[in-house]
Design a protein around this nucleic acid. Structure first.
Lengths: 102, 102
DNA sequence: TCCTAATACCTTGTTACGCATAGTATTATA
DNA sequence: TATAATACTATGCGTAACAAGGTATTAGGA
């Protein structure tokens, strides 16, 4: 997908995955890959941002001798999804405008 | 609208306005303002990019003693709109994914 | 007459963010 | 024993929105 179009989606995509239950970096990429391509160097900064903004909380747990950082969506995170779903109406209206002559 | 969501739309919005006929900076802002907020410091770099990418051509003409730079969409510019309208399907699919739990 | 708004263009600097590349380390598998 | 998979992180680049500021002319109202 076009990079600029993705920018409006990636944060919410990650939150949306976490709404199904806690997850961790590597798995989020795998789960999202069916719907949108997201690389590690894109996801981890997003997760950091989301954590700093209190849209997610984290816990670190050992799994097969390796540390895994689990991310859980917060109430604020769920609200952000809701806001997105409301804001998107404006997007659709502009889309209709662009499509008007076709 | 959310800045990140806008990023996928602004270029195509400008091209879309020009598809109705040639126009100039100030008027493009006015015409678009019904649909999307775009400031001068956002539009003029966009117009420059579009011109460099041959999506628009320009002519400068005097109007009431002032110079106006008119922008006209090219075939390549019209193609870019078409590509957007095709790409947007992916966007909608991701949108459906985000909306799935609601 | 003077001032403000409107018209019309442009540049600079800041900030945000996607992503390629690279680095580290462990476990599973062929 | 080597390679793929798992798992996380940091650095640097390029793109783009936008606030702020600058220049210049014309129109209209006080």
């Amino acid at each position: 997908m076009d990079v600029q179009l993705k920018r409006g989606l990636l944060d919410v995509c990650v939150l949306s995955v976490l709404k199904d239950g806690e997850s961790y970096g590597y798995k989020i990429i795998a789960d999202l890959s069916e719907h949108i391509v997201i690389s590690e160097s894109t996801l981890y900064p997003i997760l950091k941002r989301l954590e700093q903004g209190k849209f997610v909380t984290t816990r670190t747990a050992e799994h097969n001798g390796r540390l895994r950082k689990y991310y859980m969506i917060t109430q604020k995170g769920k609200q952000k999804i809701e806001e997105f779903l409301q804001d998107i109406d404006e997007f659709f209206k502009v889309y209709d405008f662009i499509r008007r002559q076709n």
